[in-house]
Amino acid sequence: MTSRSETATSCHREEHRQLLFRYVLAHADDNLILAQRLSGWISRAPDLEEDIAMANIALDLLGRARMLLDYAGQLEGRDRSEDDLAMFRSEREFTNLLLVEQPNGDFAHTMVRQFLYDAYQTALWKSLCGSADATLAGIAGKAIKEARYHLRHSGTWLLRLGRGTEESHRRTQRALEGLWRFTAEMFETSETDRKLAGAGLGVEPAGLQPGWERGVEKVFCEAGLQIPNDRFARSGGRSGFHTEHLGLMLAEMQWMQRAYPGMQW
């Protein structure tokens, strides 16, 4: 016989497990989609050294996505593997941020996107190191080291692009103006976020915003770049409403598994 309080605790635990599934999946999607985007630079980077650097970063993000997808599959308890989750979900089922699905554009555009994301990831994983969920805290412990290096890399480039030539400055400023509207979404706090933060499992995204803003403002200021005044913000990615770019990207990423389900090589 289970007492009423034990049943309540069990329900509570089950609810947390389902919330954590959605939470972990959303962060997995961020990393998977940006890894796929960054891989688009392979063999096309401005120089050989940066080609390897971007491939390294893409692989770090893919590795993080794999750990998170695998864990999400376990939490869901429906026997879906990391590959099932990556390859057999449609656009509406992806809950990544709109920022990471934006096309690469030129090198300045990719570096601005990367910098905005790296600064967010650094803050996120630093906080999640303290998660009461041991698996998530373990992933965070690995991710934070990578994220700090990624931030150093993209930050270094922003300073050089912003203060480089007239053309590099113009392109970087244009990228910032195009991408800034996608940043507010990183800090939107959902009911899931609030409940998980309350249970000590996750963090409230809104709490990460002040530190993130200070960090990026400092670098943009040093780089001589102006943060747009425009407060217009795009969002919807976390609920599965995406920009037109994600569908095309998924078609390319998933077509092999869709055409030959379960194939391996």
Partner: peptide, 16 residues
């Protein structure tokens, strides 16, 4: 390797 300055050279060396 090729790099515009020391910091980029250091990061590229790390990656390469």
């Amino acid at each position: 390797l090729h790099a515009p300055d020391g910091e980029i050279a250091l990061q590229s060396a790390r990656d390469v």
